[in-house]
Every structure is written in C-alpha cells, then in structure tokens.
Design a protein around this nucleic acid. Structure first.
Lengths: 366, 366
DNA sequence: CTGTTAGCGCATTCAG
DNA sequence: CTGAATGCGCTAACAG
C-alpha cells in the first residue's frame, strides 16, 4: 500500500542505499543517477518514513521551541522568528528537503508541562530545543530541568535559551540569550524619577519567575539609588522595605491582572503618581483601570510597560515601555539551534533593552 | 549508553514484550508485574524511543497545528486552545504517558510552506493535523492541498479545519469548523448603516484569502441591501461596482497595512465617515492613521475591526468589532483531532460571529 | 561513485 | 497473563 524506499530503488534501478544518499544529499552521487532517482520519487509520490529514518540515524529533524503562552505575542514573535531560521523552505528547495521540523510547544507556564514536553522531545530524539521566556525559580523544578537538559544534551540535542537566564549550575551545554531585564527595569524607573515621580506603584508578574524578579530588582535598584525605598517617615531603607512591598502587587502576565492590581494599588496608595507594569499587556489593563477611576494618562497618572509589543505604540497615549528585540533574539536562537551560528563567548549573551519614552509618562501633577 | 526497552525488561525480569505492554497500557498485565516494570523504568530513567515505536506501530503521537502567523494572537489563541486538548499532562498522569505531542507549525501565510509542513508531518506519520485560519484560493494550490490531505487521511491522519472553510471538493475526510465571516461582516456593516453612515471605507486583507473574501462579501451584501453599492450619480449598482472598489484597499493583515491603507482611503475619498478594517490589528493601524490626520474617533470618523482580540477592548475608544470565539473553536478542533468529540453533522460546523458594539463607532458628524 | 550487509528499538503476531 | 520470534523502513559502515 505505502511506497517505500525500496520501491523507489527498484523503479530507478539502483540500490536502496543510493536512493537514501540522494535524498539526504550528504554523499556524492552521479548527476544522472540522481536524476533517475528523483524522477522515480516523483513518479511514485514517495514520502520518506521519518520514524524509520530517525531510528536508523539515531537522530531526528525535529526542533522543539518551548513557550509559556503562545497566545501572548511576546512568545509568538520569538517563536515565529526562530522558526524562520529552522523550518520550512527558505532553503530555496521547492521539495521538502533537508528542512527541520520546527515545532512550538505551549507549556502554559506550567513547570510540569515544561518537563513533559522535554520528555516528549527527548523521546523523539529532537535535534535541538529552544526554551523561551522566564524560568520558574523553584529549586526542585530547576534541579529537574537541569537533569533533563543534561540528559538531552548528552543524547546530542542542542539546547538554546532565549530570553531566559542560564541555569544556576551553569551547564556549559547550553547557549543562552538573556534579556537585560534588570537594566531595562532600572532605566525605566530612572526615567520616571527624573520626571519627578516619588511614589511609583509596580504591577509585577508571578513572583516565582526570573523575568518578574529581574525587572523588579532593576526597578528597586533605581529607587534605592534615588533614596526612595524607605517609607515616608521611616528610615530603615532596607531592600524590599515595607513601603515598597505595599507599592507592589503580583499577578499573572495578563491584562486582567493589570486591571485588578492597579485598582488595588490605587486603593492602597492613592498618592501614587505613576504605575509601572510588568509588561505591555499588563500595562494595557492598568491603563483601563486608571481611566475607569476617572483619571487621565499621563496628566493624573503615568503608566509604563515592558517589551514594546506591536500594539503598544498604538495605545492612547502611546505607551512608554522598554523595547526588547524579540524577533532578532528569536531568530538568533533559531540559528544557534541549527548550529548556523557560534554560541556567544561563555555561552551567554545579554541582549540590551532599550527605553522607549512615549506619551503615557509625564511629570506628575502639581 | 542509552537505555532501551530490553534493559528495562532485564531489570524487571520480564520479556521486552511485557514492558511494551505496560508502557502502552492497552493490554492486560498483572498488577504486580506492572509495578515491577514501572519501578525498573524509574530506576533506569528509561525514555521510550519515539522513532522506533512509531516505526513498529506505523503511527506516531505527533499532532500538527498549522497557523499562518504565530505572532498574531488570532492564531496564538486558537493554537494554544487546541494544545490544551491534545498535548501535555491534563490527563492527570504525572509521568509522560499517553500524551500526544501537539506541535505548532508557522507557515507565515505561504502556500508552499503550508504544503511543506504537511509533507513533514506526513513523514512523521502524524496522528492528526489541524489547519487554522483562512485558506489561499489559488486553484493550483487548492488542488495540491486537496491531494496532500487525501493522502494524509488515507494514511490514517485525522484532518481538522479550524476557522477555515472546507475544501471546494469537499473531502468527506475532514471535520471543518468555519467561522461565519460573511455574517459577521454583514452585521457590522448593517450596524454602521443604521447609525447613518453612507460612505464606508474598507481596509481588506490579502485578496486571495477566503477570510478576506468572505468578510468583504458580507460587508457588500449589507451595502447592497441598503442600496449603497452604486456610486453617487451612477446607477448600475452591480456587485463590486467601481465606487465600492474605490472604497476598498487590500493589504496584509497587519498594523502597518491598516495605517497606510487608511491614509490612501482618506486621500481617495475624503468624505468617508467610517472605516471597517479586515481585523482588529489592522483596525489599530487605521485608528492611528485617522488620529494622525487630526481626526477624532468616533466623532469625525468611526472605525471598526474584526475578531475581538484581547487588546481591542482596551483601545481608546474601545473598538467596535465582531467577536469570534477563538479559544472555544481551537479547543473544539483539538478535541476533534483527538477523536474525543464526534465531527459535526455533514463534517462542517459554522461558528457564529457576534457583533460587539463599543465606543469606536457612532453616528456620522453633521 | 555504487551495491551489500546489518542492525536501530520497538510492537506485534503467535504459542504457551 | 507472559515469552519468543519477526519485521517495520531506513542509514551506515564496509566493500567493491
């Protein structure tokens, strides 16, 4: 019923090995022979059996891209960019040739799913795995991840981090592209401080994620440097002082969280003059909440985001945010996964975050 | 080096066949034996060899989800929803068990890539394929798709369309979930007409896509019903009359296209009082263009979108649009792909599109 | 440059 | 309920 390599060989009057060689193209074959084989392939409408070939070769052409939330363009952009470097034609060849099958796996932010996908990919003997976005900092999970990744790497799977800091133990086996979340958070806070803001609310992401922590740390660094980390009246000023904690609300990275956290913030501290959101999506929710409270942006209150997603420039007023080169980073991760590009020195590269000052931030009223 | 089923068998003191049976769980095995095997699996940290098992069983646990543009939440939401029904744990089992590997493939809207991904998936003997979003209407491509899908179906791959109309030839082998784009487009135009708009610009998507055509057809249906399809002064009134063509600009489904097309529309017909965009992303660009021309929304000009993506409600003013139940549709497609749900009668279900009237549309000035 | 020979690791018959 | 034997379709040495 189903046509095999042997059938093609018979029709082309060559040995199966030869057919395999022209198909994989990694071995010299006479042009005329190749022609004949290719014709037979077309005539018979032959499609390679992936599992069989992976079994024999002990490696597959699958590349996995893990994302936390594919409905979020933050991940969509990176994943799409990575795929441009990995899968599909672009190699120019019309026929499906030496392409890898780049494949996106949506973990939904769940550590267990992340591990499960890794196992599934390991089962498939994936050629490479790209992990995008912040990691969960639970020690048990980190250990499990580290063990799993080591095993994958040992089996020949290339591992690339994109927008995620390297593992604490620093496996030498991965190439990591890390965003400068801390620096971005710091510069954004500095911008607000320089405008004259003194009471700044912060809508943070889930506490256990590296992205959340780094952005928040950068934010507080700037506050501390400006002497704004102590509550008015007290002077302890330790990092994470009570007042700063009161000005910070954690929640998921979504619009709704931004909305609710902002209401909460406004309730807790009606004197805030600016709100920094964990990312642009959250910032959108924050803007809605601010407006629903009858306040104007930026006259009554400034709002800022992080990531500079495409819609941020279209917000009204346009959102001040920190731009992350998501597409470029994703593409580079894809190239690293393909071995088209050498890993950065030390295995880790930090990707700059650029402050984008737009209409949603201004000097505080009064 | 790498541990195989035989190793597990040896350690559990059973035959390889028995190990295979407990792993696949589709055959009676004594509880005590199962215990022993499972322990051996854990002890040895055994991971099934996917290719080997797929080769032997002539089917794999891969499910492909094809999308046109994964950076667009329209697709991200559907794909993510489908994955919740297919991959990862949720089956409750902690260990990676009977899960399928749900995998998203980004075609970038290119017909060739679509075909290539299908071939790649065919190679892998995918268990199912979900195709999302509008199709390209080029006859040659449609024929190629039809042929390819038939072959996949013959090989036992389940085919599901999600947000895409069934193929013209109507292969009985696919289940299709089609959005009511035409009805949505019609109701949106009716809404504007009832507000009093007579000159309505339309920023359409790429002309060759079904989604574009259906939305536009619905739009024009409503115009025609209201007697608005003829140019002022002439009376031929045939469908697609010159005037309507002048009020329509095609472009890709992105923000920039919305921006530029709107400028063009405003130049061609300064008297338009409303602009309908092909989707919400395009509408955002349209809003920006309108504002950059110094006009207010909706006082000077109304703007509407399509899809009701999460950010649309946060636009200022909130965007009038047509809501598509993307998550629900994606989840249902996932279930169909898994065979968890029966296909709709006739193989095709039409999914309703709901008009969402918000602040970006109002009666025209004057 | 091309053919021959062996498995790759597992799911299945079929016996027991 | 369990074990032994067979082959899935292909690639990778190794010869020629």
């Amino acid at each position: 019923m189903t046509v095999t390599l042997a059938d093609v060989a018979a029709r082309a009057r060559v040995s199966p090995a030869t057919v395999s060689r022209v198909l994989n193209g990694n071995y010299p074959v006479a042009a005329s022979t190749r022609e004949r084989v290719l014709r037979a392939v077309d005539d018979l409408d032959y499609v390679l059996n992936g599992p069989a070939s992976s079994l024999a070769a002990a490696t597959s052409d699958l590349v996995g891209i893990l994302v936390n939330d594919i409905a979020d363009p933050f991940f969509g952009i990176m994943a799409g960019a990575a795929q441009t470097q990995i899968g599909g034609p672009g190699d120019g060849s019309g026929r499906a040739g030496g392409e890898k099958l780049a494949v996106i796996c949506n973990t939904g932010g769940s550590p267990e799913r992340e591990l499960t996908y890794l196992t599934l990919l390991q089962r498939q003997r994936a050629a490479a795995v790209v992990l995008t976005g912040g990691a969960v900092e639970d020690p048990a999970h980190q250990a499990a991840m580290s063990a799993k990744l080591t095993k994958l790497a040992d089996a020949g799977t290339r591992i690339v981090f994109c927008g995620r800091p390297p593992l604490p133990e620093g496996d030498a086996l991965v190439a990591a592209l890390a965003f400068d979340n801390r620096g971005g958070g710091r510069r954004l806070a500095e911008h607000l401080i320089s405008l004259g803001h003194r009471r700044i609310g912060y809508v943070a992401g889930p506490p256990e994620r590296t992205t959340t922590r780094h952005r928040l740390e950068g934010h507080r660094e700037a506050l501390r440097a400006a002497g704004l980390d102590a509550a008015p009246g007290e002077a302890d000023g330790g990092p994470g002082s009570d007042d700063q904690d009161r000005l910070t609300v954690h929640g998921p990275y979504d619009r709704r969280s931004g909305y609710e956290a902002t209401l909460e913030l406004l309730r807790r501290a009606p004197d805030v003059t600016a709100i920094v959101a964990a990312n642009d999506t959250v910032a959108l929710g924050a803007c809605a909440a601010v407006r629903d409270q009858g306040m104007r942006i930026p006259q009554d209150i400034s709002v800022a985001g992080f990531d500079d997603l495409p819609f941020s420039v279209d917000a009204v007023p346009a959102l001040t945010t920190v731009r992350l080169p998501l597409f470029e980073a994703g593409a580079r991760a894809g190239r690293l996964a393909m071995g088209k590009e050498n890993p950065p020195p030390g295995g880790i590269a930090t990707i700059a975050a650029e402050l984008m000052i737009r209409g949603s931030t201004a000097a505080p009223r009064g």
